[in-house]
């Protein structure tokens, strides 16, 4: 977990977001906000400390926090063929 600010990109999938406001209420750096359309959006992405709260606690799996630096990205979503 990086302690430096602004190394992460916060993506919200608006189609999946139901606007419950959990991410906006508990984000320690106040990165997320509920917009006028009732959906969450990342307004202060440069303050993100990569704590991962929003991603772990989004009940609708609508938030993705990824490192901006592509080389640091994990390949979680591709499960090895042997395990399928």
């Amino acid at each position: 977990m990086s302690k430096k600010k602004g190394q992460s990109k916060v993506t919200v999938y608006p189609d999946w977001c139901k606007g419950c406001g959990l991410c906006a209420a508990f984000c320690p750096a106040k990165v997320l906000e509920i917009g006028a359309d009732g959906k969450a959006r990342a307004v202060r992405e440069e303050d993100c400390v990569d704590c991962g709260f929003c991603e772990l606690h989004c009940p609708d799996f609508a938030i993705l926090v990824t490192p901006k630096d592509k080389s640091r990205r994990k390949d979680n979503h591709v499960v090895p063929a042997a395990r399928e």
């Binding site: 977990m1 992460s8 189609d15 999946w16 977001c17 139901k18 606007g19 419950c20 406001g21 990569d50 704590c51 991962g52 991603e55 772990l56 989004c58 009940p59 609708d60 799996f61 609508a62 938030i63 993705l64 926090v65 990824t66 490192p67 990205r73 994990k74 979680n76 979503h77 499960v79």
Partner: peptide, 24 residues
């Protein structure tokens, strides 16, 4: 820490209607 959501999406049946029925 990050990149858990992609993992979750991998295990879901995407032919079912998403987002799920649970309330906000």
């Amino acid at each position: 820490m990050a990149e858990r959501t992609q993992l979750i999406h991998h295990y879901l049946r995407h032919n079912k209607k998403f987002p799920h029925v649970y309330c906000a």
